[in-house]
């Protein structure tokens, strides 16, 4: 009895540690999944984020081929971290458009010069309204849009090298 009491603190700690370990390896998915997945893009028409290419509207997507829509900002460090993966996707033939959140043309230009430029079109969303309409709650996020303009896949957070195959698979599935 006495001995058992002495080991009780250790036992309690081990239960606690097991619980935390379980949580670590099965992290609760607390990211906010957009309700828009499976639905058509909301109507929007954004002005150009940079002078050298057109802005972005929802009508640009319903043209028969799937496209990747990347929501980013030049002030966001994870966006810089995912840039090489976007360039890689572009090389693999994925058409990529972007929505820049609360950004300035000169900052976007600087960002693209530094980290690579995979974008065909860039729309400027100065007050996050399109982002919100898309059901996105942070930057970066990426959406796979199929040829009919329907949102097929949402990727929350930066695209890491290990996510590239998932994105490619989602693009293929959207053909």
């Amino acid at each position: 009895m006495k001995k058992a009491i002495l080991w009780a603190p250790l036992a309690m700690f081990l239960i606690f540690a097991a619980m935390v370990a379980g949580k670590l390896y099965a992290p609760g998915d607390s990211s906010i999944v957009s309700h828009m997945v499976g639905k058509p893009l909301p109507a929007f028409a954004l002005p150009a984020g940079m002078p050298d290419r057109p802005g972005l509207a929802n009508t640009d997507f319903a043209k028969g081929k799937p496209r990747l829509l990347n929501i980013f900002a030049s002030w966001c460090v994870p966006c810089a971290a995912e840039a090489p993966q976007l360039v890689e996707l572009r090389k693999a033939g994925v058409e990529i458009d972007a929505i820049a959140i609360r950004d300035r043309p000169e900052d976007i230009a600087e960002f693209l010069k530094r980290y690579g430029d995979p974008y065909a079109r860039i729309g400027s969303d100065a007050n996050s309204s399109v982002q919100v309409a898309m059901g996105s709650s942070g930057v970066p996020e990426s959406f796979v849009i199929d040829g009919q303009g329907i949102i097929r896949h949402q990727h929350i957070g930066d695209i890491r090298p290990e996510n590239v195959p998932d994105i490619l698979a989602a693009i293929r599935a959207a053909q």
Partner: peptide, 11 residues
């Protein structure tokens, strides 16, 4: 970030 994992990126 185990307790305040409102941030999926954080863990």
């Amino acid at each position: 970030g185990i307790l305040t994992s409102v941030h999926s990126f954080a863990v």
